[in-house]
């Protein structure tokens, strides 16, 4: 669920192209609403309400009765539906392996590559302090 929610919609759409046509019912049609985000006072203290974010949720039911759920930040109904479908397929033995390999693994690799890019670019801005030598000798 984590990878399906965090991934860019265009990436999910392209990797999940083959499973998108799997027959399913909508247990709950994609619906956009809000979740209140919270922080902690002094980063580690008691919680406080920070502000809301848009979230789209969807639930599907496969022909064999397996249910899949998705909550994805933003307002992309297609993303929530495809993520819910992948979630349902991931619970099956064969379909689970296929979706893990075809969809989840490449998405995870993309996320990881993006994190490395951000982190190495930030690391390049790390200050390397040195002390100017001064004195008479």
């Amino acid at each position: 669920m984590r990878v399906l929610s965090l991934s860019d919609w265009r990436d999910l759409e392209s990797y999940a192209k083959e499973v998108a046509g799997t027959p399913h019912d909508l247990l709950r049609a994609p619906e956009t609403g809000l979740v209140m985000l919270r922080g902690r006072m002094g980063a580690t203290g008691a919680a406080f309400n920070l502000g809301e974010a848009t979230v789209t949720r969807c639930a599907v039911r496969l022909v064999d009765g397996t249910e899949g759920h998705a909550y994805v930040m933003g307002r992309n109904a297609a993303h929530a539906r495809l993520a819910a479908l992948c979630d349902a397929l991931l619970q099956g033995k064969d379909s689970g392996t296929a979706v893990s390999e075809m969809v989840i693994a490449p998405l995870e690799a993309k996320l990881q590559a993006a994190h490395v890019e951000t982190s190495t670019k930030a690391a390049a801005t790390k200050v390397d302090f040195f002390t100017m030598v001064r004195g008479d000798d």
Binding site: G33, V35, M36, R38, R40, N49, E52
Partner: peptide, 16 residues
């Protein structure tokens, strides 16, 4: 928009 609920407090310790 309807509210679905409250999120878990953000863990800024694990910030990227």
């Amino acid at each position: 928009l309807a509210r679905f609920g409250y999120a878990e407090p953000l863990d800024t310790q694990s910030m990227r």
